[in-house]
Design a binder for these strands. Structure first.
Lengths: 229, 229
DNA sequence: GGCTGTGAAACATTTCACAGCA
DNA sequence: TGCTGTGAAATGTTTCACAGCC
């Protein structure tokens, strides 16, 4: 498999791709993946009124203080030497960088156990997200609602998206359905995909991330075997 | 934050740590994380009787063929030049490397929506795992079963582990409870932890991996903003 | 004095390119 | 001829060490 380098193509592992238009200068992937951890760390900080040090952020995020400083310095000079990082200021900068100032809408496709669990997740408020709807193809599951969020038939996904496409589509269907669902999402203008189905979603021109429980277990199994034989 | 380099300490991001004893030569982390994808790719191969090429594996796993060959070459010389990789042989080698030959037992702590979804996941058979029990602190949730798997009170976790500790403990509790649960797991001899609670679990001497839905969404938000402004 | 910000060094991973074997 | 296996080069990331500022 070959791929134009430096292009908009999907990147390995943590996949994403850019639909079109100008590519901005991107922060390194590992740094982007740590930013949410820093955000949580400073929000859970013991004293929100006094500045926090890279040392303390690192302790809460499981990262060295060097790494924290290096990462944060990419967001501009945001700390104060001799003092640390102002919590509100830093939270604002990270949220801005991650694009969390605007509330992002989510559609969850697959109203099974996992979909219901994720659709009903209580942490979205304050994190910048709002679940707008759940979808399923099984009419027995549709029509109701989950904590005020309607559960609709997948057939209406496209129509529901007209005028206000979802920012993120979460796929919690069985493996067989995932590619089809992803196609519908792209067609409907959904802007990014978080996939929980155990399949590889090929590049579709929008950012895609995959979370696969079984693979996580298998990775753990490796380290487990190395540690215990 | 400073940490002895090359030690058994927790590694950043994809955390793991080794309890004690000899450290084996480890395959690079990125490679380990791709192996389960290769395993799935070859299992879903069009024709299981004829050999598969690195090109085809890569296409199914979203990785370049170079990368596939480099990764697989770390497991020893397992392919045939001019031909490709024998599917059964390769699957066996990867499974061996990942330690999937022995069935691993899982305990899920937190019998809420997410715990039930993960505890009832149908893909474990064939992937090398078996959910042995679910646990919760809420007596209203305990006592029953989920597809034959008993739901027990967390108080009995320690006693249940005597003689046959769980290989992997999955934490699906709220954030506040996660650290306490992790402590119990370590005390009970649970050998690795997969954490879904939105907190950083500090190093505990056993391999730990974290999956956090909100962080995944925030990472997506970043690329989404870069793509669409 | 204390803590950030950042070049430079060290280290890790991926890509390239091709030798080697079926 | 076709595809693997692998050194070497290119690239990316983390760690180090300290200058710079509050």
């Amino acid at each position: 498999m070959n791929r134009a380098k430096g292009s908009f193509g999907a990147l390995v592992g943590q996949v994403f791709a850019i639909r079109s238009g100008t590519m901005h200068r991107l922060i390194p992937g590992p740094t982007v993946r740590r930013l949410p951890r820093y955000l949580r760390a400073i929000r859970e900080s013991a004293d929100p009124t006094s500045p926090i040090s890279s040392e303390e952020i690192g302790a809460h995020a499981g990262v060295t203080s060097d790494q924290v400083r290096k990462d944060l310095s990419r967001l501009g000079s945001v700390g104060k030497r001799g003092t640390g990082y102002d919590i509100d200021r830093l939270a604002g900068v990270i949220e801005h960088e991650l694009g969390l100032e605007r509330q992002l809408t989510i559609a969850v496709v697959g109203a099974g156990n996992l979909g219901m669990a994720i659709g009903g997740y209580p942490e979205y408020q304050g994190a910048g997200f709002e679940v707008a709807a759940l979808y399923d193809i099984n009419p027995n599951r549709t029509g109701g609602s989950l904590g005020g969020v309607p559960i609709r038939h997948m057939d209406s996904y496209l129509a529901d998206s007209v005028g206000h496409p979802f920012d993120i589509g979460i796929i919690t269907t069985p493996a067989e359905a995932a590619n089809e669902v992803a196609d519908v999402m792209v067609e409907a203008g959904t802007r990014a995909i978080l996939n929980f189905a155990p399949v590889w979603l090929g590049p579709r021109g929008i950012p895609v991330r995959n979370v696969r429980v079984v693979e996580e277990l298998q990775i753990l199994a490796y380290y487990l075997r190395k540690a215990y034989g």
